[in-house]
Each structure stands twice: as C-alpha cells, then as structure tokens.
C-alpha cells in the first residue's frame, strides 16, 4: 500500500447522491438538450445563484432566457442582414405573441441601451421563457433578481445570430409559480467598457484595464459613464397556457 492508496482509504467516503439530486441533474441535462452542442451559457455564472440554495427539484419548471437579435421570428443562424448602405435600419425587436408554443405574459421595450427594464410577473405554469431581443449585435446583458435568499444575477451577450441561453438552475426553483418575480434587465452597447467573462475571472477588482466587471453594483456606473444610446431592445416573458 503506497501513499496514494492509503490516502484513498483515509479520506472519509461520501454517500451516493440522493435520487432527487440525480433527478435534478438529469433534468438540467434535459433542459440543456434544447441548446446546440458547444454553446455556453452567457456570463460568468452557470446560472441563477439562488438555485444553488434550493432544495431538491420539486417541479420541472423551464425558464429559458433567449437572447435574440434581428426580428420576431424564431432564431436562425444567419449573417446580419445586408442593408442598403445609405439607408440606416434597425432590426425589429418587437416580441412575437408566442414563442415555442408559449404565450406572452409580460413584455417591455427600451429604445436605448445603457438602460434597464424591470419586469414583474407571476408565472402561471412551470414553463416559462424569457426572451431578449437586441438590435445591436453583441450587446451586453445583465439579468438580476432580488429575492428572499439574496441576489441572483447572470450576464451574457445579446447575439446577432439568435444565440440562446438558458438559466438552467433557475428552472428548478421550488415554488416557481407561487410568487411574483421582479427581474431587472440591463442592456449595454457592444463596445461598452465591460470585461469579458473570460477576462473577468482574472480580475479581482471592480475594474481592470479600464473595464468594469458587470454586476448589479456596477451597472448604474457603467450606464452613467456611457449615456443612453438609441439602440432598441426588448424583453418578453412567455408562459405556458393553462
């Protein structure tokens, strides 16, 4: 018996995962199957933080946050539209009335970036989708919600090609339909001085190299620094019909 074998025996063993834990992990995978392989969630966090303090999954809530740009149709991996050089045009961000069979529950549109929208909604079912549409490809997004367990936030990019994201952890929050949710969305222009999620990992301060960490603490500061820009975006909450 060498040191490694001894070490393996000396470290206390752990109980196997409970069926609920396995079920929750499997459900996250099921939710993830809707996303193409190789795609990563936006932002530095794997999901909404509050899910980490949740107990085992009790409902198969599906909360999809979809970042879209380029119009109300379903996302399609196409190149940005070719526009006449002399006719400036802004892709529509008007949300469609339905999304993947879900009906629209709440929606709001902002005419400028470096601005925020706060939506209050109470889901009527365990199937909920949140869809952001940004006219400026590469817009930076911050989503946050304050609740009893603290603050949950996630950041990402409003992509030009219908990039999708899903805050998987959020999908398994117990009591999803039993309370009103107040979620704040910030959208910043693509050239905003915001650290990329990759660089952010190596930055322990609020700012590095003149760029901010994107969080609820810094969003207002970044917005004030930039000033609003005429780049429309919208957010819509979809829910399953009863």
């Amino acid at each position: 018996m060498d040191e490694i074998t001894l070490l393996g025996r000396a470290i206390p063993d752990a109980p196997p995962p409970s069926p609920q834990v396995v079920a929750r992990a499997r459900a996250r995978l099921t939710a993830g199957e809707r996303r193409p392989a190789g795609h990563r969630p936006p932002g530095r966090r794997s999901g909404w933080t509050w899910a980490l303090v949740c107990a085992a999954a009790t409902a198969a809530v599906t909360l999809a946050v979809v970042f879209l740009a380029g119009g109300p149709t379903a996302p399609s991996p196409v190149t940005p539209p070719t526009l006449p050089p002399t006719v400036p045009s802004t892709p529509s961000v008007e949300p469609p009335a339905t999304y993947q069979g879900l009906r629209i529950l709440r929606t709001e549109t902002s005419q400028s970036t470096a601005a925020k929208i706060t939506l209050r909604f109470r889901p009527t079912s365990v199937k909920t989708a949140i869809v952001l549409r940004c006219s400026a490809p590469g817009s930076r997004v911050l989503v946050s919600e304050t609740h009893d367990d603290g603050l949950s936030e996630a950041s990402g990019v409003c992509g030009p090609d219908g990039t999708r994201s899903r805050f998987d952890d959020k999908s398994y929050e117990p009591g999803w339909t039993s309370r009103t949710h107040t979620v704040t969305f910030w959208v910043f222009p693509p050239d905003a001085p915001i650290l990329s999620s990759r660089v952010e990992h190596n930055c322990n301060r609020a700012m590095c190299d003149g760029k901010h960490r994107l969080s609820t603490e810094t969003a207002s500061t970044i917005a004030a620094r930039l000033g609003e820009r005429p780049q429309p975006w919208s957010v819509a909450v979809y829910d399953s019909p009863r």
Binding site: A14, P17, V21, R24, A25, R28, L29, G32, E33, R35, A37, G38, H39, R40, S46, L52, D168
Partner: peptide, 15 residues
C-alpha cells in the same frame, strides 16, 4: 457536490 456534479455534466454535455 450536488451542484458541481450537475454542473460537470451540463458542461460536458454542452462541450
């Protein structure tokens, strides 16, 4: 481990 194991497989699935 409950969370990180699930994260592990989610990342693996995506990649």
């Amino acid at each position: 481990a409950d969370d990180l194991a699930a994260d592990t497989f989610l990342i693996a699935f995506r990649d």
